[in-house]
Structure formats: C-alpha cells, structure tokens
Design a protein around this nucleic acid. Structure first.
Lengths: 135, 135
DNA sequence: TCCTAATATAAGTCAAAACTTATATTAGGA
DNA sequence: TCCTAATATAAGTTTTGACTTATATTAGGA
C-alpha cells in the first residue's frame, strides 16, 4: 500500500485517534464511534456522527491502514500492519547517515520480523474489505 | 515536537516531496522551489510558486520536520530528525505483539542510537541541525 | 416475512488550507 | 547609499475534504 495514501489518511487527527483506538484492540465500527465520541467530548470538542466515523474508516481502509472482518451485522476493524509498514518504509529514506552499522541491523530486524509475520498468518490478505453485495 | 504537528504537515503531498528532496541533502529555499517545480511539471501537474513553497517550508519548520540556517541572503533547509523521531515514536505504539523479543532489541537499538546522536552533537537546539554536508 | 440493529453511501454545506498576486524585509554588492 | 537577489508575509480566491441529514443495504431475530 502506498505510503502516499497512508500519510494522506494519517493527516487527519480524528483518523489518528481511530488508529490509536484500534491499536488497543479490534473493535466493531459502532464501538469505534462510541469510544471516539467519548474521547472527543472529554477534550471539549463536540461528538461525532456515525456516518463521519464510517467515512473515516473507509479512508483508512483504502489506505491499507485497517482491516475489516464481518461478524454478523457488525464489521470488526483492526490495525493493518501493511499500511504501517509503508509509512515506516518511507521514513527509512531519512535513516541518519550518522547512525552507522547498527542501523543496518535494526532495519534488517524490522524486515525479518515483517516477513515472519506474514508467513505465520496466512489468510490475512485483503479479505473482508469488500463492500458487500451490490456495488 | 508533537507527532500531531508532524503528521498534519506530512499529510500534504507537496510537503512530502519537499521532505524527500531535503532527504537528498540540504538546499536553500530557492533550490527547493526549483527542484519541486521540475518534479511536479514532470508529473503533468503544473508548477508551484515561490510563496507557496515558502509557506510549505514554514509549516514543516513549525512541525519540527526541517531546520533552517541563514547563509547570506539564503536560507538553507535540511531535514530535522527530531520531527521524524516523533513520527517513529507514534508508530511504535503499534509495535506488533506477535513480534516477540526481537522487537525489544530493535526498539532498544533505536533508542540508543537516538541518544548517542544527541550526545555527539551538542549545540543542536533549534537551528543549524545541518545533516551531512551537502550530500 | 417484517422489523430492527449495524453500517455504509448519497448529496449537499461549510470551513480549513493550499494557492495566487502583490508587497515587505533583509543581506550583500556596485 | 541604492539596487538587486532571496525569501518571507499579506490578502484574497479557490479547492479539498470533513461534516451533516437522509437513505440504502444487509443480517439476524420475532
């Protein structure tokens, strides 16, 4: 997934809050909306409507930052490491030349970890992202 | 520098192009504008005016993503690792629990490297964080 | 089958923010 | 000192995109 789309998506603070929430664990869209409403209300900012959250989730989905899984009538969202990897990859462009050989090791670890993960968890490519039915 | 400001700033594609340019080495604002104009023109997109670039640079500056150094009447811009570190720190929130002990090592390396860098380069508050020569 | 819950999409509004032209500022040279 | 080059700031316009209300879609239960 392009780092472009990922950064575009993460450019919005509400979507970052959503990512942080999902970072704590998977949640159905409704729970995301509820938790978000709370968090925003706590900050004085007004709440947020269900469609708004749904739209934000769509952007995050298309950016490869979250995954969806249908569960009954619910849609359970979770963090997609793929999009995050794209962001990290973009950042590697700035890996400091001062850092020396340790950087290479570090990068290598990250790469290896990523591959191991993909290998261990087979069936999790695109998947449930399908907008259901018609379209 | 807050990851908030950094992500807000990186949410714009033109600013990401500017970061990529500066990643190749320091440049005065004018050179940034020129190189950007070329790159955008090559992509079919129209050019970009000097004030527009100046405004983008201001946003990046305030986000802690670039540094400036006056050189005669020029202002030489470069990547500020501090802002990038904030972004990386935010991403660490999603460090995959699947990853196991290697992650700890990896994180430790990153932390140590960061500290080493700050220790080695004393006078670098604001200003003058010149990364490597001109590259 | 009909109803309800959960979510997504449509359509339109409004505000933030990216761009433009014009002008101010500042350093260095003639 | 005056002029020019390099950049920043002002002010105004236009575009993008986040939000709202209304509605469609789909799954499951009565």
């Amino acid at each position: 997934m392009s780092a472009e789309a990922a950064f575009d998506a993460l450019g919005d603070p509400v979507r970052r809050r959503i990512m942080e929430l999902l970072g704590e664990g998977e949640r159905p869209a409704g729970a995301v909306a509820a938790a978000l409403g709370e968090r925003l209300a706590a900050q004085g900012r007004g709440g947020i409507s269900q469609p708004a959250v749904s739209q934000h989730l769509k952007v995050l989905r298309e950016a490869g930052l979250v995954t969806v899984r249908a569960e009954g009538t619910r849609r359970v969202y979770g963090v997609d490491e793929e999009g995050l990897a794209a962001v990290r990859a973009w950042l590697e462009r700035f890996a400091d030349a001062f850092a020396g050989p340790l950087d290479a090791l570090e990068t290598e670890l990250a790469r290896g970890r990523r591959e191991r993960r993909l290998a261990e968890r087979p069936g999790r490519g695109r998947e449930g992202t399908g907008r259901r039915g018609a379209a």
